[in-house]
């Protein structure tokens, strides 16, 4: 597990709500932290290489793009076939999160989660059918959990 040092941590705190919208954003971040823009870029590059940063760019708001309907689909997938089929589902353009998770038997037989987005309930249903076709007879059962209400949404925030 790769750890982060104190300066990485300050860099994360300084950029987690976004990069400055200026011509030299890394220099400006560096100025606030008393390091050079070059060191900012080097550290960000190193965190990308270690996977601490997944990517740098635009994070769209699904709702504002008209993707107002989402369903958390959950599937009971044959353990022997999940690692082959998982990436196929993850590659579908309308799937935004796709994971294997533990079952909690007997009440929760599902070990595979895929978040499906669409512009209407009907579109989400169609897309769930496409996931079902990819999984085929490897999926014994599935369910869809629609969100009713956001109770909290703050995301990860490192404290100073």
């Amino acid at each position: 597990m790769s750890r982060i040092d104190a300066m990485d941590r300050r860099l994360i705190t300084a950029t987690q709500s976004g990069l400055p919208l200026t011509r030299r954003p890394y220099d400006d971040v560096g100025a606030a932290l008393d390091i050079s823009g070059e060191e900012v870029r080097r550290r960000l590059q190193a965190m990308m290489a270690r996977g601490v940063i997944r990517r740098i760019g635009a994070v769209p708001n699904h709702y504002k793009l008209g993707l107002t309907h989402n369903g958390m689909t959950v599937w009971d997938v044959d353990d022997a076939r999940i690692s082959a089929l998982g990436p196929e589902v993850g590659a579908l353009e309308f799937v935004s999160h796709c994971y294997q998770r533990p079952r909690h038997l007997p009440d929760w037989p599902y070990n595979f989660f895929a978040m499906v987005h669409g512009r209407s309930a009907g579109e989400v249903m169609e897309k769930i059918e496409r996931v079902a076709r990819v999984l085929g007879d490897a999926a014994r059962a599935h369910d869809v959990l629609y969100s009713k209400r956001i109770l909290k949404k703050t995301g990860l925030r490192l404290q100073n």
Binding site: Q16, L19, I53, R54, R55, V59, P60, L156
Partner: peptide
């Protein structure tokens, strides 16, 4: 329309 623009951390 964008909730953020910058690095996404894991």
């Amino acid at each position: 329309v964008l909730s953020r623009f910058g690095p996404m951390f894991d």
